[in-house]
Design a binder for these strands. Structure first.
Lengths: 354, 354
DNA sequence: ACGTGTCATGATAGCGCTATCTTTTTATCG
DNA sequence: CGATAAAAAGATAGCGCTATCATGACACGT
């Protein structure tokens, strides 16, 4: 009998029972200590904690979630394989999922490929909630479909808040405002701006932040210096080439993301301009690219990992609350960004200053 | 009684019992069908599968691993946050972990920060095996420590095979050989090479592949065209600047990774050279950067995701085998790479050809 | 002294699944 | 056609944990 048991058992890892025996109490008390320990005498708690430490006990997740019957399945859908963003996102999600004991399913989901079918299938039964990073969080068709399916979804970093779904974002407007302010403070007056992909709503917010900072500083925006981009390296390169070909060219360019900013740096070098001595270039997002290229980019860092964690937290909260009939509606959160100053900005060249 | 039950239950998701009832058999038979279905009549299997589909049944992982008592904990350690690589790795690992029902723990592990302490702690009880991507897979101190701890480890993409640990790799030598061959076939004869970081053993293999392809083609390697790099953008830029400053400069540069290749492209543009018209640039790894910049890089793609999956598969196999006393020793696998041709290569300019 | 309430703890019963053993059914043969 | 082996299906018993209820101990008021 005992042998059979031993064979079925996990690798001799200690269980609550082992701890209980050592601490001379019941397994239930051990469980209480592990889970916050309300209603346990201080003395008992210490004994249990000592036993846990001695045995190097770690609770079995499977058993825990089975008993608690709380295993949620969360699908993280991604589309644009901006690798830097994705890996941060993944790590954040995994941490949170592990902590919350949720099962994370990661699925690539391109808009063209039968997105509808997959989501329907997932939503039908196997998935309790969705996590949608950009650009999926701005895919209104997808959002509508999810809403219709009555699914819980959490948008990470969308350009605009959503009444129907939960949202975790940074203040794109304010961040762009701050960056513009930073460039102005360096002494620049002719500042070029490259707009992001018009289908992502963050683009408009960043542009607005730029415009407002400029006008508040009393510097009129020269519309010739505002170019449309697509969030791609190439579009940034092209836009910058146009800007630098102008007779009265800008002394600084603020690109709406790092890829385009990297394109600007390349364009500057093709024009024999030094960055930052002859041209200041600033980006947005702080993706890996920003610190890969040379000079490294001054940019806005989003706390991607933290956003992912928060999103998963709120999503799980929301789902559990709704399950208990508490229809408080989707959760929202705005996290802090950070202006990361690196080597791509400087005061304007003396000839252009003032 | 029933109410209590319902309250403890998961979100009304169907269980094996529901499926069994519908398929008119016992839960055990359902379990058999789910797990490969040996020893089940075709007819019964179909009935069960139909029931599964109808109820949209998905097995409960927690219960499964609890009953099977097979939940392994695998730690994925990473150090160099090459985001593109990491995200692929993560996705591959998560897929495999999900499939194998292993718990994946992702930990950042920088060489300086008390690596030893952490590993000791992990190895002590909570972690059954380690997954080590580059550059950790080449950290001999770390490897030795793990070996001493008797831990199972699997190296992903190390430069050289290891007797002590399992390994999943591509043939770096052959890949570099093939890429060199490709450049030679385009008609180039003066080919520059930028070596990778000397601490990663893959660097030497790539260099060897280059040299052998050259000599087999009867093209002597001009040592002035072989530069040391560090796998960073900046080192690639610097090396390329030197190469392009030569009186008799190369018509092609083969960089040992994409970051350095991107640096080469930037250097070319600073020298008013068009890529690929005036200079062919090829990379290695096919990270996101390769298809971000313009022109997009011809490079070698490692099947990173597949490598991660294979690594986890083999690691779990190894652990389970060893647990059952089957000491077959660490597993090894070599996967296929792929030469991805994009827009950064072309025949040499007419003036330099032949 | 007694009831009555509060708190810490224990006993019990599963969560959903699968390992193992036992029973049935089916195929195979003399 | 009954005997035997082999295959298919079922019964039973947990995996490690926690929800729930039951118990015991102790303080309090009357």
């Amino acid at each position: 009998m005992n042998e059979q048991r031993a064979r079925r058992r996990q690798s001799g890892r200690p269980t609550v029972n082992d701890v209980a025996r050592l601490a001379d109490c019941s397994p239930m008390t051990v469980s209480r200590v592990i889970n916050g320990g309300t209603g346990v005498r201080e003395e008992t708690r210490l004994a249990v904690e000592a036993a846990i430490r001695e045995l190097n006990y770690a609770p079995n997740r499977a058993a825990r979630s089975l008993a608690g019957a709380s295993q949620l399945r969360i699908a993280l859908l991604y589309s644009n394989p901006s690798a830097a963003y994705l890996s941060e996102l993944l790590i954040g999600c995994m941490d949170a999922a592990s902590r919350l004991d949720a099962h994370l399913v990661v699925e690539r989901c391109d808009p063209d490929r039968d997105q509808a079918r997959m989501i329907a299938k997932l939503a039908e039964n196997a998935i309790d909630g969705f996590l949608l990073p950009p650009p999926l969080c701005d895919d209104t068709a997808l959002l509508a479909r999810l809403r219709r399916a009555g699914t819980h979804a959490m948008l990470i970093g969308p350009g605009q808040a959503q009444a129907q779904h939960g949202v975790v974002m940074i203040d794109d407007y304010q961040a762009a405002y701050d960056m513009t302010r930073h460039i102005l403070d360096l002494g620049h007056r002719r500042i070029g701006f490259i707009i992001g992909n018009p289908h992502q709503s963050a683009s408009a917010l960043r542009l607005a932040g730029f415009r407002d900072a400029m006008s508040e500083a009393g510097v009129p925006v020269d519309e010739a210096l505002v170019k449309q981009g697509q969030f791609t390296y190439r579009s940034g390169l092209d836009a910058a080439m146009e800007l630098l070909a102008l007779a009265d060219r800008p002394t600084a360019i603020f690109a709406s993301n790092d890829d385009m900013a990297a394109g600007c740096v390349a364009a500057a070098h093709r024009n024999d301009l030094d960055v930052p001595k002859d041209l200041t270039v600033c980006g947005f997002d702080d993706t890996a690219l920003a610190s890969t290229i040379w000079p490294e980019l001054t940019t806005i860092r989003q706390p991607i990992r933290q956003m992912a964690e928060t999103a998963l937290d709120l999503l799980v909260q929301d789902i559990r609350a709704r399950r208990q009939g508490d229809a408080r509606g989707p959760r929202h959160a705005t996290l802090d960004y950070q202006l990361v100053r690196r080597d791509s900005d400087a005061p304007p060249p003396a000839s252009a200053a003032g």
